[in-house]
């Protein structure tokens, strides 16, 4: 069986690193892994998505509608946007941070204000955390990604050690400790 985690957010939020850490963990578990990334134009503040898929044998690097086991959303609105990819019974891990997209800034569209309730109203298990504050507590706002991985690890029943090892092998040496701390804060909040 192939499991799928989608990591969605706004270009520049560090979704790529999160997907690489998670992918590393799954590879070390001896599983087949595929990760699909976004580079280029969409990275500039647009809606971005990476897919991490793992199992005995993975074919497609991207997920289909209604197939993701978990969506880790780095921003509230993005959880709503990518909802159609969640499978029935799938979980959402959501950063409560709100980043207005340009059509909201220019007044063309409105930012929906009840996303969390709306998702829960559909019977979806949503874990909402203020990852930005936790990341800042860990030492840098940039660590939102590892905070959310901590939440994901707790929700999925993965051990901390596997992620420590992955962080040590994917993050630049001077940021390892801060990322481990951020991961722990997320794990404890998850």
């Amino acid at each position: 069986m192939t499991e799928t985690v989608m990591i969605v957010g706004v270009g520049g939020q560090g979704t790529l690193l999160a997907s690489r850490i998670l992918g590393y963990v799954m590879m070390k578990k001896g599983l087949d892994v595929k990760i699909s990334e976004v580079h280029g134009m969409s990275q500039r503040g647009g809606s971005v998505v990476t897919y991490v898929r793992y199992g005995d044998k993975v074919y497609s690097p991207i997920a289909d509608l209604g197939t993701a086991d978990m969506i880790i959303s780095f921003e509230r609105l993005e959880a709503a946007r990518w909802l159609p990819y969640l499978k029935q019974g799938g979980k959402i891990v959501m950063n409560t941070q709100k980043i207005d997209p340009m059509p909201v800034i220019t007044g063309v569209s409105e930012y929906p204000d009840d996303i969390e309730d709306n998702l829960r109203g559909k019977g979806i298990c949503v874990t909402a955390v203020d990852a930005l504050s936790l990341a800042e507590a860990a030492g840098t706002a940039k660590a939102v990604n590892t905070v959310l991985l901590g939440v994901c690890a707790k929700q999925s029943g993965f051990s901390r050690d596997m992620f420590y090892d992955a962080i040590e092998n994917t993050v630049k040496p001077k940021f390892i400790e801060i990322n481990k701390k951020a991961f722990d804060l997320g794990y404890d909040a998850g």
Binding site: R44, G45, S47, L65, G66, A80, Y85, K87, M102, P112
Partner: peptide, 19 residues
């Protein structure tokens, strides 16, 4: 056909922007 759950309201698009 794929079966999936849609969000109830329209979700504003988020096009890429100048940083």
């Amino acid at each position: 056909k794929a079966s999936y759950c849609d969000y109830d309201a329209s979700v504003p698009v988020r096009p890429p922007v100048l940083c």
